[in-house]
Amino acid sequence: MDSKTKQKEFMLLYEVIHTSFIKYCKAKSYGIMDYKDLVNESVLRAFEKFERLQKKDSFAAYIYSIASNIIKNELRRKKISRLPDNYIIDVKQLTENHAIQKFEIEILYKALHKLPEKQKEAIILFEISGYSIKEIAEIQKSGISAIKQRLKRGRQKLSELLYVPVVMKEEKRQPLKVLLMLFF
């Protein structure tokens, strides 16, 4: 394949997923590496082996798996098992304007890293990158019900993890029914 044709074809497929992919990279690389490096390296690797991709429909799955592998290698290299326990963001890390908005996003990213790998990926793809469950099933090469389960459990755990200054309501109590059963 001519290199120009290859690039054109590649960019056509890539254009569709550009925004989602960058958001994915940003969430996924948090605390591990610079997300711009991740984007560049993933694109380069994907482009290099682009000819080998048989089904062009599965381009998304292809490039996401490349990014995922790069992160895995980086983790192995740096031997980061997980991020520090403290999920309340350190104010020291705020370096730019719009501190508060960044605050929320960074709190979310930190919390995300406490989820299991597949769960985290599913949540990022669904909630941040905006993919449908069916698409995520293709990317993660899993069944739809498995993805649903991952999303559900991931959301549950995230709710617990995210620091929310709130008291949850207690469950309603129904003591009388038990009492009546005792009497009669």
Binding site: I105, L108, G130, S159, V166
Partner: peptide, 14 residues
């Protein structure tokens, strides 16, 4: 309420 808060975070990231 928890869901609401979670969605707020997702909204910001999205």
């Amino acid at each position: 309420y928890k869901e609401n808060i979670l969605n707020k975070y997702f909204f910001a990231a999205k």
